[in-house]
Amino acid sequence: MKHETDHEAESSTGAQTVDRACELLREIARTGAAGVRILDLCHATSLSRPTAHRILRSLQLAGLVRQSPENRRYALGSGLFELGMAAPNPIAQFPQVRSVAEELAASTEDTVYLMLRSYDDVLCAWRAQGAYPIKANVVALGDRRPMGASVAGLCLLASLPEAESDALIAANGPYLPAFCRMTPADVTRHVNDARDKGYSVGVNAVMEGVTAVGMAVPASYQRPCMALSVSAISSRIPPERIPALVEQLKRSAARIAAITGSDAAAR
């Protein structure tokens, strides 16, 4: 039997610490500016409090995490912003893609979201505002949501093999109540419906009084990793308007697919 050397053991322990730090950062990012308690981080990551505290302390010293002196909650630190300024955009042709989202918002007069898959979540890569005075600003730029907690995420789940989407829905389950009004069973129903139709409609699914229509951006030889959605107060999207929105989304998604090819990659 092969015995692990001291060097291999140290490398394994170091890699495990990095994995845990990344997991903590993703959980903190998901909670946004409000921050999160260490108790909730431990529950979500299954880390012991001493382990979580030790890693968080190191992240604080690096400026990657900050802790509020008022409520002791953890949020992302400015060091991540500085690193992000030097990192490449996952969508290489982002200015052109952003323009397509802006044009869709202008034509629909409603709020358009461009969502990008990131592990088990979706990330708001852009939010374009239409001219209609009442906005459905459910997600802010840079916000993360579990895939099953947004209409765009439902479309991405529908593009996956059923076993894979079922596993992601199960993983998302504990987080859904904080981000939407759907249960895992509701998410599964919406995903199956999106598989049949090629788009998803959420009426009061994420927020009471808000309706959204979403569609995944086609990918040439890989699974879709981007999706578009049009969101508005429900009176703006009655059932008879949905076919027109679907056609607008289809044209915009095809334009983005032509622009990006396979350059955008899911993580």
Rank of each mutant, 00 (worst) to 15 (best):
A167N: 14
L154V: 15
G148Q: 06
P161F: 08
M147L: 14
A167M: 08
L157H: 08
L156V: 12
M147F: 04
A171Q: 13
G173F: 00
A170T: 12
A171P: 09
N172W: 06
A149F: 01
V139E: 03
A170E: 15
C155W: 00
V139Q: 11
C155V: 07
D143V: 11
M147A: 09
R145N: 13
D143A: 15
L141H: 15
E164H: 04
N172G: 04
N172L: 07
A163F: 04
P174I: 04
C155N: 13
A152V: 02
R144E: 08
P174D: 10
L156Y: 00
E162V: 03
G153W: 08
G148S: 11
S165L: 11
P174Q: 05
V151N: 03
R144A: 03
L160N: 01
A163V: 11
G173A: 15
V139S: 12
L141G: 10
G153Y: 09
L154C: 15
A140I: 13
R145V: 09
G153L: 06
A140G: 12
S150M: 09
A170W: 08
E162N: 00
L154R: 12
R144Y: 15
A171K: 06
L156Q: 01
L141C: 14
G153M: 09
D166C: 07
V151P: 02
A149L: 07
S165Y: 08
D143L: 14
N172V: 00
V139R: 00
E162H: 04
A149H: 06
E164Q: 05
D143P: 12
L168N: 03
L141P: 05
A171R: 13
G173W: 03
L160W: 07
N172D: 14
G142Y: 03
I169Q: 05
S165G: 07
M147K: 01
N172Q: 13
P174Y: 11
S150P: 11
L157D: 10
R144L: 13
P161D: 05
G148R: 03
A171H: 14
L157S: 08
P161L: 08
A158C: 11
A140H: 10
P174L: 09
L154I: 15
L157T: 08
A149C: 09
G173S: 15
G142D: 07
C155T: 13
A167G: 12
A152R: 00
E164P: 04
L156S: 02
P161K: 00
A158Y: 02
